[in-house]
Amino acid sequence: MKFWDQYRLRLERKRRRARSLRKRRELTPAALNVSKIREDDVILFSTVRNEKIRLPFFFEYYRKLGVNHFCFVDNGSDDGTLEYLISQPDVSVWHTTRSYKRAGFGMDWLNGLLGAYAVGHWCLVVDVDEFFVYPHCDTRPIQALTHWLDQSSTRSFGTQLVDTYPKGKISEAHYRPGDNPMTVSDHFDTGNYYYERNRKYGNLWIQGGARQRGFFAGRPAFAPALNKIPLVKWKRGNVFVSSTHNLLPRSLNLVYAHNGGQRASGCLVHTKFLEMFSTKTKEELARKQHYAASREYNSYSKHRGGKNDLWNGQSVKYKDWRQLESLGLMSSGDWA
């Protein structure tokens, strides 16, 4: 990489950081428990809007993994999400009604908060419908992973998003608060993912899965990116660029082995497709606050499924991380 390219990335990083500091001022604290954060704590960051129904299981899952503190940005929820979050003891919440789109789809806000509270910590940046699955996550807490990453002088951990969907119609996948969404939206595509490298940022660019074949078959190049780097040891000056797909400095994106071996990596199980999805699509299309002119939601709304929306004969039921590893979708690398 040429010096000039490196310098341009440095400028981009500075610009994004400055922007995040400016955008951070749009946030008003609604519950501040950041003083409870201790030295080695793992902190989770997320932006939410009207997700109250998902929150009970979300907390159950991540508390069990060992996440010590949660930081949320609430973007104008009106279904009681904010109140629910405030009532939790290990949660800090910031509130804003400003534009999600103009805050880099929420990333400016999160970059701002990360810079303020996460420096020196391992932090997990996920949406409330994403569940972080890493090797041995059934027997080892997330601190075991972060300790090992520290020992290996590694500062970030890569994952691949795996979309799950129910058998049958999405609108009939009934979900009640507290249910495990991975047992309702419980099928996934095992082997139709395509891998490329993004030269500019150095990250992998993964596309495919159920969303590509289901909603983007006509324009596969526009299918959503599935590469995510949700777990990062935060350092002053780091910024997420586009969602958690890539970061700056560039070295944080090199989470994969390029010499033929494999490094430890995980998956994010993405349980977007539950009954709430159809109402959410209408709402999001009206708000026009999503990436690339809400391309994704547009495709969803146009899509008319038959008996099954996404399920087909090749779909496989989701079990656990070992299943994902044997399919080659993640790897325990040398973290045995």
């Binding site: 994952t159 691949q160 993912y193 992998l204 989470v255 082995a257 494999q262 990596s265 080659g328 993640m330």
Partner: peptide, 11 residues
């Protein structure tokens, strides 16, 4: 391939 494996160059 997966998020931890993408052979490049000679590999």
């Amino acid at each position: 391939f997966n998020a931890g494996r993408f052979p490049g160059g000679y590999a």
